[in-house]
Write a protein that binds this DNA or RNA. Structure first.
Length: 469
DNA sequence: CTGTGCGGGGAAG
DNA sequence: CTTCCCCGCACAG
């Protein structure tokens, strides 16, 4: 079974998924999950979860993730599209910034990019994600039994786009308003796009990357944004588990300048588009401007109140707003591409230990069994073709697995329990975790590598503090 | 129309 | 060989 690599991952302490040592590519994944992680809409960093949630079945994510063919029918791979922003980085009327969700469909995205900023009419710009060694952050989904294994690789180096639910909400609310167009519909949005040069990437000294899984802190925020509607329970967004298991790395291959630049004065406010975030560490967390867009985009001008799909709590805090305004986030163009964007997520909360963590993570190496097209040397039940049924299932493909694990209630044992570190006390949903999050038990840990040569050492300086504001 | 997933296939290492 | 990406397809909402 999973061996060396597995053991090396044993020290993960956090989510249910993390406490078990597995990699999405393992021939056999932990079975008989007694518990699963609450669904994470905004995963970030090198994390793993085991879900049993509906949202997970749909492979949802707050980030705009598109399907990527990895020629592996067992593992669904998705890569991040980044975020669409105003090329001028203008400020919306409410002080937030435009952070649109890139359309997943290629065609739709192209269309989308031809539109202009609803606020300043500048061109829109797609900020690609390069959080994983210069490539987009990737998410992997694999269904095994009842459990849905999720693994993410890379740290988003861009602000969050609108969540899917926000986007949908906006769309529908726009539709509802079509009949009564308040004022100047911006049909000019359809004018040809002026291309901006997105290539300017400032290179600089490769420094630490204070990349931090956003979720790690996001669960602390009192007023989580208005993503709920589409989902069942808000709690699901409060990640009780530590995602540090596989820490966001300082990549060795400086493929992504944005990630490596040091930036003393990170103006996180620039990304904090939703003024509704009180003073929590989440300030560091780029957010999407939801209701503002609702009003601005698509020619809408409905009063905030009409925006039924949004959470009332989202009203801006006056003072906070001012703060944001006063901070001239992007002075110019393309800030996203410059050195200012390295440490998007400010880091560990004060007191955070993880001063320096060297952790190994696997890359997107999905050298799992490619789906044998023809019924290769596999038993009959191993046909790759997915079941006609709705939800995706990567089941029976490569490794002959116990095909009839009905309730997935039997196998942790089969899977050589010894190889899994079970020691982690899984902090419970709400409270306890916070602590385990902010204070990673292992201040300095060094994992050793995987034999595959894909190990990356990641420095984890907790240099960044955001108490300056 | 858009999101989603599949799978072919090319480019690059 | 692997991993990345693009593309078109089919299907669903």
């Amino acid at each position: 079974l999973p061996s060396a690599a597995c053991r090396e991952r044993a020290d993960c302490v956090c989510s249910v998924g993390m406490k078990l040592t597995w990699d999405i590519n393992d021939p056999k994944l932990p079975q008989d999950m007694k518990q699963s992680d609450p669904f994470q809409e905004w995963t970030d960093g090198y994390v793993r979860y085991i879900y049993s949630d509906k949202n997970a079945q749909r492979h949802l994510s707050g980030w705009a993730m598109r399907n990527t063919n990895n020629h592996n029918c067992q593992i669904l791979k998705k890569s991040c599209l980044g975020v669409v922003v105003c090329s001028r980085g203008c400020t919306l009327p409410d002080g937030s910034r435009l952070q649109l969700r890139p359309a997943i469909c290629d065609k739709a995205r192209q269309k989308q990019q031809k539109k202009l900023c609803p606020s300043c009419h500048a061109a829109l710009e797609l900020l690609p994600c390069r959080g994983h060694s210069g490539y987009p952050v990737t998410n992997f989904w694999r269904v095994d039994g009842k459990a849905i294994f999720f693994q993410a690789k890379g740290v988003h180096d861009h602000p969050r786009p609108e969540s899917k639910s926000e986007t949908e909400a906006r769309r529908s609310s726009v539709k509802r308003r079509v009949s009564s167009p308040p004022f100047t519909p911006k049909r000019r949005l359809l004018e040809p796009q002026v291309h901006t040069n997105k290539q300017q990437q400032t290179l600089g000294p490769a420094l630490l990357s204070c990349v931090e899984p956003a979720d790690r802190i996001s669960f602390m925020e009192p007023n989580f944004p208005q993503h709920y509607p589409a989902f069942q329970s808000p709690e699901a967004y409060y990640n009780p588990h530590n995602e540090l298991g596989e820490a966001p790395p300082t990549l060795q291959k400086p493929a992504n300048p944005r990630l490596y630049m040091s930036r003393p004065s990170y103006e996180f406010q620039g990304y904090l588009t939703s003024p509704s975030y009180p003073v929590t560490s989440d300030l560091c967390d780029p957010r999407s401007a939801s209701y503002p867009l609702d009003q601005i985009l698509e020619g809408g001008s409905a009063p905030l109140s009409s925006s039924s799909s949004f959470d009332p709590q989202t009203k801006p805090l006056a003072g906070w707003k001012e703060l944001l305004k006063s901070s001239t986030p992007y002075s110019d163009n393309h800030h996203y591409y410059s050195a200012e964007y390295p440490c998007r997520y400010p880091s560990n909360p004060p007191g955070s230990p993880a001063a320096l963590q060297t952790i190994i993570t696997t890359t997107t190496k999905v050298s799992y069994q490619p789906c044998p097209k023809p019924p290769a040397a596999l038993p009959s039940y191993q046909s790759c073709p997915k079941p006609p049924s709705g939800l995706p299932s990567y089941q029976p493909c490569a490794p002959p697995k116990q095909s009839g694990l009905p309730g997935c209630s039997s196998l942790l044992e089969n899977a050589s329990p010894s190889s899994y570190s079970t020691e982690v006390k899984v902090t419970d949903e709400s409270g306890g975790v916070i602590k385990s999050l902010s204070f990673q038990p292992e201040p300095l840990q060094t994992k050793t590598e995987r034999a595959d040569g894909y190990d990356y050492r990641y420095a984890y300086p907790n240099t960044y503090r955001y108490d300056d504001y």
